[in-house]
Design a protein around this nucleic acid. Sequence first.
DNA 1: TGTGTAC
Length: 766
Amino acid sequence: MPKNGKPKGGRPSRNFEPRYAKKASFHDRHAGGRPGARDERSSAGRDDDRRSYSSDRRADTRPGSRSPKHRGYRAVESGAAAPKRRWSDSERAGRDESRSIRNRAESGRREAPHHRNDRDDRGRDFGGRRFEGRGGRRFEERGERRFDDRPRRDDRPRRDDRGGYDRNDRGERPRFDRGGSGRPQFGGDRPRHGRDDRQGRDDRRGFGAGGERPRFNRDDRSRFDRTERPRFDRDDRGRGGYERRDDRPRFDRTDRPARDERPRYDREDRDRGGYTRRDDRPRRDDRDFSRPNRDDKPRHGRDDKPRHERTERPRYDRDERPARPARENRDDRPSRSDWNRTESVKKHEEHVDVVHERLEAEAVQATEVADVTFADLGLGSNIAETLRNMGAETPFPIQAATIPSILEGRDVLGRGRTGSGKTIAFGAPLVESILKSQAGKRREIGRKPRAIILAPTRELALQIDRTVQPIARSVGLFTTQIYGGVPQARQVGALKKGVDIVIGTPGRIEDLIEQGKLDLSDVRIAVLDEADHMCELGFVEPVQRILRKTADDSQKLLFSATLDREVASLVDEFLDEPAVYEVAGEDQDSGTIDHRVLVIEHRDKADVLTSLVDRDGQTLVFARTRAYAEMLAEQFEDAGVAAVSLHGDLNQAKRTRNLQKLTSGKVQVLVATDVAARGIHVDDIDLVVQADAPDEYKTYLHRSGRTGRAGRSGRVVTLITRHRRRRMEDMLDRAEIEAPFDQAQPGDEVIEEIAGRVPTAAELTA
DNA sequence: TGTGTAC
């Protein structure tokens, strides 16, 4: 250990960023004949241009840490990272306390004298320092960031767990290099794999396994599904489904005939806009749990209600539900699909209703939730204390609602806007459960993870870890991030040492599983953040395969701000009588966001956009494609407005760096694709510009949710051309958002108002 | 169609 920690940790940065940068540059230099060469070069070229353009900015704020330079720079950077201290007294105390707590809790089980030793090793030799370093300073920062809007995320990048130890892993890499050249197959498959190359062929080489392991082999997959869990077999589902379907036609997707029976929605929609999906979410409640799939389809939205009723929608339709006697009937229940709204909530019906409503009223005013504490909800003192230090004094509604059920071991579906405390809502109880489950057990090196948290983007995975890690650490548990775009070595190294909670994205997780480097068989809690998104095309299968790798009876927690029918596919297979919670008003504009739509001429788009972003305050611009996002960022730079982009064509180092530039305030404008639509927290964004209107209401809600956070005001403006007006109206309607439409041309007053350069009429009167 | 997840 010490070895590992020393050479590597001390010298090279523990941050992967610098490394990436370095590799990238190396890569650029050797990009010559490689497939991705052209892209890389052009990318690099742009980067250079920008750099020179805004060199000043960069220079001051970020002394070399980012720059791909060398040691010297790194020294500077390490200086920046220097704040990382070792364990602080309080942390150490916390660790000890947790240890004793764990032991006590485990009175029945063996005491495990090793326990302490193991941990000490970990803590001192590597985990200890780093953690502490990070912990000492970051705990607070995290808290601030998350709850107080402090933009400082600089830590983010380096903070990777055991980052410092990577170096060791690196040392091992060389021997794997042989595989380096042997992975032509990928290149062939992916025309744009250039970006991967950028990140560092070293890593890839390390895996070398390119030829050895056909990870993504389609055949393997199919084999997988069926053999592993026969019970989930489609056929089975179909069977089960039918039974249920009879009861509830709407949920079944296979149950198409049923739809025919309920054509009324379609018709209404058709009359309106034909293609509109409006019906899909007449009311939020329905939308979530009963709707067939996505909004696109105008399928029968089973309810007769005209959408206007939505405003009145009781969140869970509890009233509508036939009251069931609590969970005793579990066995009697027709199927899991009931999760929708019946039983799950029912079990806690009384309790839930009470708590839910009481808190709900406080949802907007988080500070009012004073009568309940995290301890009341069942969390241990260490965790409660950590949450307090993070800025979470009292539980938010969604937390108060879900924590008890999660601790109870139930599967849970939770809907709450990211930033409203959703991460803690599942993170804190998850840590508590894991802690209890292994109370008294020795923490072994190389132990298998006990929990896994899946997110759709790397940035979100990082963010989740920033919240969960301190909580876990407060009780002696370890987390690690497993996502792509960065070298595997560090991640694998962490797994070898043993981690309790894995947080990451599907791709890399599955990859490591197939490599035999990640074993989820001990995972007893699996969380899907942005669950509805994780159930979309392209995501759902990997997710299913991953979930199937977890312990058979593992607890599943699905969260999202727009949790809807889309998760039915997973719910049917993986959840058992899930409890369903949501907090009204948290999944969309909570009244603090001002929505506007500007109807413009296409030829004016560039000027209007530049005018909108040339302002004080941070602006997040959404573009539909990566290319357009990149183009807009350049356009803004050319116009003298510092801007960076965030999209999938950038290597992870750059993605991280660019996002960090926004959060740190170095740049005021970030142009992104929908990679930034969900979950990303940048507290000071006060304007969201949708250069391209989203295609579905959920995307609108997620994008607009990047502003107006924590009760502050925010503004969202969407640019459309006149022929898109109708679609836009329909979408807003589905999103239940009121937004005035204004015709606009460059220079118009309305643009000045939206940009905040001129007070609006409302602001003047106010 | 594009976006994200991956080597």
